[in-house]
Each structure stands twice: as C-alpha cells, then as structure tokens.
Amino acid sequence: MNPTSKAVRVQILKWNQTFAIPWYSLALAITLVVAIYAVVGGGASDSGGHTGAATIFYASSAGTQLWLINQLFPFCMAMSVTRGAFVRATMLVVAAEAVIAGVGLTVLDRIERATDGWFVHVQLLDLPYLHQENVFAQALVYGVPMAAISAVMACVGAVFRTFGQLGLWVFGMGAAFLAAVVFAALTLTHTARSVGHFFASQPSLANLALYPLVVLAVFGGAWALLMMRARI
C-alpha cells in the first residue's frame, strides 16, 4: 500500500467524524424545519417558505479539518506517515467530501423540488440564488463551497499547528486589518458600490463555484506550504 493510501485510510477510519457530521446536521435541520412548517403552516403562502437552515451543513463541516490537523496529523507522523502523504491524503478526502456534498445535496434538492418542498412548501436547498437548471452546475454550487470552507479551516488549523496561539492571533488580526484596509480603500475611492454591482451582476455559478474555487486555491496552497514545514 502506498503512503498516500495509508494516510487516506487512517483519515477515514473514523468516517463519521470525517464525512458524516454535516449530513447528520442537515438531516436534523430538515426534520426540524419540516416539522415546524407542518405545524405552523409557514410555507403555505404563495411565495413558499425559504429558510437558511441548510447552512448548518457547511457550518458543521468546519471542525473536521481542525481535528485532522491538530489530532490526526501528529498521530500519523508518529506512525511515520510523511507530511507529503498526509497532505495528498487530505486533498483526496476534501475532494471526496466536496463531491459527496455536491451530489448528495443535488439529489436532496431534486427531491425537495419533486415533493413541492418536503410536502410542506418549504425550501431549504432550492433557494432562488442557488437554483441551477443544469444538474452538474447545481452540484458545483453545492460542492465547491464545501471544499473552500475545508481549505480555509485547514489553513487556520495549519497556522495554529505551526505558529501556535500567537500565530493564530496574528493571522486573525492580519486578516481583519487587511479587510479594513480594503474596505477603507473602497470607501475612499467611492468604488464600493461598483464592487457590489460587479458581484451582483455575476451569474450565481461564478459567485458560488468559481470564486470559492479561487479561495480554495489560495487557502489550500497556503495550508499545503505550512503543513510541509510543520514540526511535531
């Protein structure tokens, strides 16, 4: 067995930790929302009921990477898995996670449409801005943000792994400072509205799949670089 396969198998040994938690959360969200709408009839209006409850799916995936980097990575290193093998394995796991998210959520989206909002006229997945007619595009809209969130959280975990709590604080402050500078520059140059218009005029596929892909590349690249230098 090659080193990357070993690292993948170790990472998915606790598969419910690696893959299943977002699905448990989503199942819970659907159950609760459907139950509430069934009781109160909130989705019976002409426009139907829209909820953002499905964001729990993405939010609850955020802890996986922190667990992988801060608990499983040192253990794997003790078992003499190389950094490179762990990084490649994590990339494969994140890719699989994104594909499963894309396909799974698209299937649920189609079920939601076919059942007229889970029989209670509620929309958790088929939200107006997320809606894509093409199945492949719909899977991208659901799956790529999942990978992007994983990359951001992995990068945060790697910063903590490499530089400790102080490094994480500097990273957070740096990100906040950068955001403030960008906001100030946009305000001072009166271009904030143009930027807003730019993103508003983009197709939702670009905003939800293409730009998250850029986030994925930037944070994923930084994460890989940090992991290759990580000391245990």
Partner: peptide, 30 residues
C-alpha cells in the same frame, strides 16, 4: 519512514478514537 515507529511520552492521540481504533490506525500505517 515506513520502517520507523516513534512512540513518545507526549504523543497526541486523536481523543475521540477508542483504543481499538488507535490500534487499527497503527495497523494501517505500520
């Protein structure tokens, strides 16, 4: 490194692993 195993006092284990899962992970890696 596939021929090396390093057990140290401060080794961090995945805390949500059970004993058997830690051994299963070691079995995969070694």
């Amino acid at each position: 490194l596939s021929r090396v195993c390093f057990i140290r006092e401060s080794l961090k284990y995945p805390t949500n692993f059970k004993v058997r899962e830690a051994l299963a992970a070691a079995a995969i890696a070694c």
